[in-house]
């Protein structure tokens, strides 16, 4: 068995989610190859070669792959599977990041197999667990496809060591340019705050924040903790904050180390988006609020007193 892991990177730095994906691959067992598709991504390939447990790094360096457009990268991956032919890849894995989710289903369809999205555990080489219904149920799924195409939820696997490996780096002379899509530009968030779904700590506010201006208290706390700021649907619907901050079944699903829910009652719709967090803290003045049923630490207090105090002591 040989497993192909698609590296997550920005042509300069290998993203940490790749290490979690390699960890999932190691649980499946077999040789692990990492594909770095990009442009001028030599540093990424070097970093990938050092990952513990990686046998080979394939580098497809071409302008067509510069921004990892799925129209160009998916045929590359499909061709790698088909070219290797006899020895073949048994599994193709990518992190369930926006990039992995964008590319991998296109690969699966090109190979005419079903994909398994966001696995959280490996039961055997062909059987995996994944959350459905926003994490309210866990499905065990078996694949009988010749090539199993899988995205990996990073929080489900502890990362492998980034150092210690010495894989061979091999160039792949391929240039698939479908010519139907082009990169126009990107605007990366200017804030120093981490991105919501990738943050180690998330501080979220709900209807109890009373207005958008009061979110400044949460921003201050978040900046002190290096946390991202989220919101409940109630806070979004009330117009306090934009809807891309929404955590919940129809918003973003997060599973940080620490989730601090402030002025959030804990409707099931919200819990669906954050209940896989390692530690949950609830700060709410209503001691009957359902959020306390899932919170590891609950504090029944007025948030307008607690948050500034919290910010000053950490």
């Amino acid at each position: 068995m040989t497993i192909l892991v698609i590296a997550e990177h920005d042509n300069k730095v290998l993203a940490p989610a790749t290490l979690n994906t390699v960890a999932a691959a190691a649980k499946i067992g077999g040789d692990i190859h990492v594909l770095v598709a990009g442009q001028g991504a030599g540093a990424v390939a070097e970093a990938a070669a050092k990952i513990a447990g990686v046998a080979k790094v394939l580098v497809a360096d071409n302008a067509a792959y510069a921004h990892q457009l799925p129209e160009n990268v998916a045929p590359l991956v499909a061709a790698l599977v088909q070219e290797v032919g006899g020895k073949g890849y048994s599994h193709i894995l990518a992190a369930a990041t926006s990039n992995g989710k964008n590319i991998l289903p296109r690969v699966a369809a090109a190979l005419d197999v079903d994909q398994i999205s966001e696995i959280i555990s490996v039961e055997s080489a062909d059987t995996f667990k994944r959350p459905i219904y926003a994490g309210n149920a866990i499905a065990t799924v078996q694949s009988n496809a010749a090539v199993k195409v899988i995205t990996v939820r990073a929080t489900g696997f502890d990362p492998v060591a980034a150092e210690g490996g010495s894989a061979a780096v091999e160039a792949v002379a391929a240039a698939h340019d479908a010519g139907i899509s082009s990169f126009v530009g990107e605007e990366l968030a200017k804030s120093d705050r981490p991105e919501l779904t990738a943050a180690r700590i998330v501080v979220s506010g709900g209807r109890g924040m009373q207005n958008g201006d009061n979110f400044k208290h949460l921003y201050a706390l978040a900046d002190k903790l290096g946390a991202a700021v989220g919101a409940s649907r109630a806070a979004v619907d009330a117009g306090f904050v934009p809807n891309d901050m929404q955590v919940g079944q129809t918003g973003k699903i997060v599973a940080p180390q620490l989730y601090i829910a402030v002025g959030i009652s804990g409707a099931i719709q919200h819990l669906a988006g954050m209940k896989d967090s390692k530690v949950i803290v609830a700060i709410n003045k209503d001691e009957e609020a359902p959020i306390f049923q899932v919170a590891d630490y609950g504090l029944v207090v007025d948030l307008f007193e607690a948050i500034p105090e919290f910010t000053s002591v950490v």
Partner: peptide, 10 residues
Amino acid sequence: TNTTLKVEAP
């Protein structure tokens, strides 16, 4: 090519 073997509560 996929079969769901079981569905459990988390």
